[in-house]
């Protein structure tokens, strides 16, 4: 009965419990990122930023990252819709095994994915070897190291994310809405266009955001596979360790982070 603390007391408890998180985020996220921005902006005439934006390998790397990530995000979401729907809404034997198989690559780091691509499509990869055995002609040797190979590798690690994220959204769809549409005379196509897709739009957008930002940050895959086609995380690494060019690395890192965040924000506009 004596415990009649004012509401400020309880919000003080909340603030105290969150304090470690606040301090950590400030020290390990906000401070480094702010310093990154500070460095780039305090630089006289924004030299490093301009250097990155000027035509050349830095700008190419940034553009490549954006393009490859957008393509991988779109491709994986498109390919994921049907499997996600099947896993969420259909019942059939082996469904859980399928889900586990599809989610397995979620535990792979980028280098591992790059390695798997080499295993499949490297100079003596499994696919070229098998094709040579079957047809007698050598094909797709070293395809892993081309842009197409890089794209496939990105698809490989994005597809599980896309399927799982979409599946959990699809599972939350009220089943009765579909029944209601049917009772009102809507056929399968109409139900997809008038009910399914409008309801799925937010999930599709957030899945795009998830896959896009994962691709933008992907470093290990390119580290293994990239030959001539370079991406921003790789350039940051080379500038920093190879050339000790911290200004350019910083500017590139800042722009990579900002463009990823910007797309992420853009895709979550109007979400709730």
């Amino acid at each position: 009965m004596t415990d009649r603390r004012p509401p400020t007391g309880s919000s003080l408890t909340g603030a105290l419990l969150s304090l470690p998180l606040v301090l950590f985020l400030a020290a390990a996220v906000a401070w480094p990122l702010a310093s990154l921005a500070g460095h780039a902006l305090s630089d006289p005439g924004w030299r490093a930023v301009r250097q990155v934006l000027a035509a050349g390998r830095y700008r190419t790397a940034l553009v490549n990252s954006l393009g490859l990530s957008a393509a991988a995000a779109l491709g994986s979401v498109l390919l994921a819709v049907a499997p996600a729907w099947v896993l969420a809404r259909e019942r059939f034997p082996g469904r859980n095994a399928l889900r586990t198989a599809i989610s397995l690559p979620l535990t792979f780091s980028g280098v591992l994915v790059g390695f798997l691509m080499v295993v499949l499509l490297g100079r003596i990869g499994a696919i070229p070897e098998a094709l040579a055995y079957l047809t007698g002609r050598r094909m797709f040797e070293g395809a892993a190291y081309t842009v197409a190979g890089l794209f496939l590798a990105y698809l490989y690690f994005e597809l599980p994310r896309a399927v799982m994220t979409l599946e959990s959204a699809f599972r939350r769809f009220p089943r009765e809405l579909d029944s209601a549409a049917r009772a009102l005379g809507a056929g399968p196509l109409q139900r997809l266009l008038k009910v399914g897709l409008p309801l799925a739009a937010p999930a599709l957008r957030s899945t795009l955001a998830v896959t896009f930002s994962a691709s933008m940050g992907s470093f290990g895959v390119a580290l293994i596979l990239s030959r001539r086609f370079t991406v921003a995380p790789l350039e940051i690494y080379t500038e920093m360790t190879g050339f000790l060019n911290d200004e350019v690395a910083g500017a590139l890192a800042l722009m990579l982070a900002l463009s990823t965040l910007a797309v992420d924000r853009l895709l979550s506009v109007g979400k709730r």
Partner: peptide, 28 residues
């Protein structure tokens, strides 16, 4: 269902959340 001449009121109502009342009524 879609070819039966029926109207259904579901226990949870199952109103389409992305449509207005007008669009919900017009759906069928």
């Amino acid at each position: 269902t879609e070819r039966r001449d029926v109207g259904v009121v579901f226990q949870s109502y199952a109103l389409f959340p992305h449509l207005t009342v007008r669009e919900n009524i017009a759906f069928g």
